[in-house]
Structures are given as C-alpha cells and as structure tokens.
Design a binder for these strands. Structure first.
Lengths: 222, 222
DNA sequence: GCATACAATATTGTCGACAATAATGACAGC
DNA sequence: GCTGTCATTATTGTCGACAATATTGTATGC
C-alpha cells in the first residue's frame, strides 16, 4: 500500500484515538501527519476536515488541529441520541431482514468473537463499530447510515476519553443477543437488548465526577 | 464584501438550490463557481466537500459535482428522522427555556412574518430553517445542532425537488403555534404542533408517483 | 531582575501550476 | 454512411511554493 487515500488516513487516525494512543487535546501538526502517512499537507488538511466534521478533532483557525475533548455533557447527549437512533434502525430492520442478511450479521459477530479471543484491540474496535454500522446500512435509509457513522466516531472518542481501563471490553455477547432476537423476529426483545447494550457501555464510563481529559494546563494545575 | 468565506459561498449555493435556481442533477463546474464567487478553485472544492457532507451535492470522482437528486425514499426517511429529532429537541427545551429565550424566538418568528409579507423568498427560506436551528441550539446539545443543520439542508433540497409550487409557503403561523405552546410550558402540545407542522410540510410534497427529478436522459425519454 | 518590544522560527492558510482523467470531435477504414 | 480509433479539448486531482499568522526566543530599557 503505497499511497493512502484520505479515508484510509482518517480511519488510521480514528483508530489511534479509539486506542488511546492519541489522547484528547493532543496537537495534530499537519507536517508531522504528512510525514507519518507519506502524503502531502493538502491531503492531511482534507482528512482533518473530515475528522472535524465527525467530531473527532477540533480545528482552531490559524492555530491548528487537536484531538477533540468531549465534555461529560457531550457524552451523555451522544448516548442519548444514539439510543434513539439505534431504536429507529431496529424498527426498520424487522421488515427488511432475510436469511441472507441474518447470516451476514452472524458471520460478523463470529469475527468479533475471534478478535476478542485474540485480544486484537484494533480489530475489536473496528468490528464493534462495524456491527452497528452494518445494522444501519441494512435499514436501507441513506441518512441513517451517515448518522450512525457519525455517532460511532463520537462514541469511540467518548469511550476512549472516559473509560477506566484501556481495554475495549464490550464483548460480542450482547451483539449476539441482539442478533438472536432479530433472527427470531422479535423486535421488542431486540430493542430491549440494544438498550441494555448501550446502557451497559455508558455505565462503564466515568461520567460522574472525575474527567479524564484536562482541557488545559490551567485546569490541570489549579 | 470582497472575499467570501467558504461558509458564505456554501450558504449562497444552498439558497440557490432551495430557491430552485439550481435544480437536482445540474452540473457544478469548479471553474465556473470560482468565477461567479470571485475566488479560487481550491476554495470551491472545499465548499463542494462541505455541501456533499450535507447531502446537497454528490461528487463523482474524476467527473465532478452535481446537485444531489434525492429519491422519494430519501425524502420519507429524512422527514421520518426529522420528526424524531425535533421531538427530542422539544423534550430538552422544556427544562431550558426562560423568558429571554422565548423572547428571542418570538422576535425571530416576527421576522419570518415580515419576510412573508414582503414575499422575500430568500429571507423566508433562511429564517424558516433558522427557526428550527435556533430551537436545536437552545436544546444545548452540540450534536443536536449539527444534526439539525444537516436535516435542514437535506429538507430544503427535498422541498425544492418535490414541491409543486415554486412558493415556499410554509408560513410562520405554525412556528408561532409551537412557540406559544413552549411559552405556556406545555410540551405535549408543542410536540403535537411540531408533528403537525412537519407532516403538513411533507404532505405538500409530491412523493406519491411522479417525481420531479429525472435521474438521466434515459429515464426522461423512456 | 522583570517586563516589554522586537526578531526569528514554526505552523497554518491560500493559491496557481502541472498531471491525470474524462468528454468531445475528427478522421480513416470498410 | 456507419463504426471504431485516435487526437484535441475540457475538467478534475494533486502538489509544492509563497503569504499570513502565531509562537518562541532574545535583547533592551528601567
């Protein structure tokens, strides 16, 4: 892979943020990124624009790009909206799922299980988001896919920022439970399982008092 | 106004689409746009990227940018999701509105009324979207504002594509009704009025059979 | 010694030139 | 006269150079 596309670079940065290698507030210099990915500054700027739109970085004019620093309120809002959107997705899914799609999802969950067994963090993160993205795409509403992509990005950042352990331990069991209810054609239970899943993820965040992401040195030293 | 910012250019193009001067499918050549707005191609490309993310234009690699052509399904989906999102906004608003904010909204609706009386299409479109954007921002959830902006853009395109008359006759009366219920602290009635408002707008679209936007000459001549 | 002004450096913002690709038109062969 | 091929033109994609701005370092006056 010689020349990376903007999307590929964006994914790499997203993964670095989700893996907590890039922490909220960190500076993202254009020339550095360009060197790292062996590309031009122009492309890096394009990528940073995409990431800003997805809420992963903030860009200050004439200052530069930084990994975004979501607030506790942001975290709550995102999960709140996400519960609503995932609900709509499942609503739409019941009419649209056939054996073939169920099988596709099943294979995906299987991959998640393997990645978990291997403790392959990068794959775990990618596949975990991919599960929800796949459901949104099967709902066959263009905008829901776009929206879900956005929500997954922001959720990844929030998880990285507020989670206690470095481990991304949202195992595939809950995904499989949702899948099983979908297979059984039981939308209510699928909805319930999804709600439970999202609440579980949110509960594991430290949203109470201590925040992980000092906004500035001032906050850090006060 | 000598040099326009990317946002200003994007707004101008959005307005042209909403006013039906730019129709779905129309080609948007970079050099032409650059000349029209007295700017560089680089900036135009930046703007086109923004508009693509908002769903207003589609970009085909090595082909160029075109005004997006929403399908009937897209239209239904957008309004479906929009109803849900506007509902969440109103939910959050009840706890957050004070006299000052109510007054701000009231003044906005007043402006809408004036624009309507003057039959100033451009102002009508801007203010009509601005009403919903204002509510979303008062809900104080960053992501809801971003989301609403997106939904408003796409709704404008859909309205332009599927509406019978050229007139943008979503008058300020329904906005005022929502405002009144909010002022009275009656969330249920506000929700009801919003639902009615959005359904009214959607009902006025020709989403049944005939579509306004031929995807290609083949469709047009078959 | 401290603060302020100024210079040097680093970083981002903007643009125009060139390369790559697609669309169009001309021409030759049949 | 029609079709396929090639050349021409038009348009988009990419990049590096330069300008504008912010940051850091240095010196100077008090």
């Amino acid at each position: 892979m010689d020349t990376l596309t903007a999307e590929q670079i964006a994914e790499r940065i997203w993964l670095s943020i989700a893996e907590r290698r890039l922490r909220p507030g960190m500076r993202l210099k254009e020339t550095e990124l360009a060197e790292v990915f062996g590309t031009s500054r122009a492309r890096v700027r394009q990528v940073l624009g995409m990431l800003e739109r997805e809420g992963l970085v903030t860009i200050e004019v004439n200052k530069g790009a930084f990994v975004a620093e979501p607030s506790v309120e942001d975290a709550r809002d995102i999960f709140h909206i996400r519960r609503a959107v995932e609900g709509r997705v499942l609503e739409r899914l019941v009419d649209r799922l056939d054996k073939k799609k169920i099988e596709t999802i099943r294979r995906h969950v299987e991959k998640e299980r393997i990645a978990n067994a291997d403790n392959d963090q990068r794959q775990i993160i990618k596949l975990s988001g991919g599960f929800h993205q796949m459901l949104a795409e099967m709902a066959e509403a263009e905008f829901l896919s776009v929206l879900m992509r956005d929500l997954i990005s922001r959720s990844s950042l929030i998880t990285a920022a507020f989670r206690d352990s470095a481990k991304y331990n949202c195992g595939p069991d809950e995904h499989e439970e949702i899948l099983n209810h979908l297979r059984d054609g039981d939308p209510e239970k699928a909805q319930e399982a999804m709600r439970h899943h999202l609440e579980h993820v949110e509960k594991e965040l430290r949203l109470a008092a201590g925040r992980d992401t000092p906004r500035s040195l001032k906050d850090l030293l006060s």
